[in-house]
């Protein structure tokens, strides 16, 4: 702002500034209104339904339900198992994708023959439709008789495993990790390549060893990038659906029923709007617990940007 006062009187500048600010508000309005209508209003309605008697199969049962829906939910063992499955998927997939993502990023940060092509091949799974991922793994890799893994097991004289029947949750986590490791790798690789060279030079001149370099420059810099990976991945892992829908349909039993699948079934198989809405509110609260930690980073990053 200071630069423009040198060219015109301060009062004039302030006036112009004010005139520009007013339409700026209108520029923001459409996006905010759209999000309000499509996200916040439905969220309010979900909250409302969660306190109502509402089942599409029983149209005569209406009115306020008090906390009945919530007490039905909290006494349903499937809800608790869905919560556990959701958390297991998020935490295990986060650990695997970030771990392998970091290892792969360090590997691809080095120069080697055909690195560009190799990296391009390695990131491809991220762009594959999750529905397709489910079908590839379920049929062509995990199938107990005709799958490639079964063939590989027989080749080494082992008994093939029926992955989706005996290790259903592990299988789901493998599929999700296969899709998202490339994302973590790509972001971390970009982070590695944008390391502040001048700072690295400076500490090297100061005679810092590799460990110091890693500890004081690489880690803080990658930390920020890592935060972004964890935030975006959490958003998507909390809502995993396609991989489960196309492979196990939440089974066997309820072994792979996560919260989205639980709500999906409650709505479209049991038509129980009230209880499903209560479960949906549970899913929103869970997501917000993650959000509190992660949004703080985004807000922090915002303030850092003010110093440009």
């Amino acid at each position: 702002m200071a630069s423009m006062t040198t060219r015109s009187p301060a009062a004039d500048a302030a006036k112009r500034e004010k005139a520009k600010r007013a339409p700026a508000k209108w520029l923001l309005a459409p996006a905010v209104i759209f999000l309000l209508v499509w996200m916040i209003v439905p969220l309010g309605m979900t909250l409302y339904y969660s306190f109502r008697n509402y089942n599409l199969m029983m149209p005569t049962m209406t009115g306020w339900a008090g906390i009945t829906n919530y007490s039905i939910l909290f006494t349903d063992p499937t809800f608790w198992s869905a919560l556990k499955v959701t958390l297991l998927i998020v935490l295990c997939s986060l650990i695997i994708t970030v771990g392998f993502g970091l290892a792969f990023a360090l590997l691809f940060h080095r120069n080697f023959f055909g690195r560009g092509v190799a990296r391009t091949l390695a990131v491809a799974p991220f762009f594959v439709m999750p529905v397709v991922t489910g079908l590839i793994w379920k049929n062509m890799l995990f199938h107990p008789a005709f799958g490639l893994l079964a063939w590989l097991f027989r080749l080494f004289g082992a008994t093939p495993i029926d992955w989706l029947a005996h290790f259903p949750l592990t299988s789901i986590i493998i599929m999700i990790s296969w899709e998202w490791t490339p994302f973590a790798m790509l972001v971390l690789l970009t982070g590695l390549q944008s390391l502040p060279e001048d700072q690295l030079e400076a500490v090297r001149l100061d005679g810092a060893n590799k460990w110091h370099e890693f500890r004081h420059i690489v880690v803080p810099h990658l930390g920020q990038v890592l935060y972004v990976v964890v935030m975006l991945e959490s958003i998507f892992f909390l809502t995993s659906f396609a991989e489960i829908y196309t492979t196990t349909s939440g089974g066997p039993g309820t072994a792979t029923t996560n919260l989205p699948y639980y709500i999906f079934q409650g709505t479209f198989a049991q038509y129980d709007i009230g209880t499903s809405s209560a479960a949906a509110i549970g899913a929103v609260i869970l997501a917000n617990i993650f959000a509190i930690f992660l949004i703080r980073f985004v807000a922090g990053n915002l303030n850092a940007g003010e110093n440009r």
Binding site: P42, T46, I295
Partner: peptide
């Protein structure tokens, strides 16, 4: 700042959280 953070936070509303009313 508030508006921006609010916008990102709406991304944390899972699709199932708004599925039923929208349906």
């Amino acid at each position: 700042d508030f508006t921006l953070v609010w916008m990102v936070s709406t991304k944390f509303i899972p699709a199932v959280g708004v599925l039923i009313p929208i349906f």
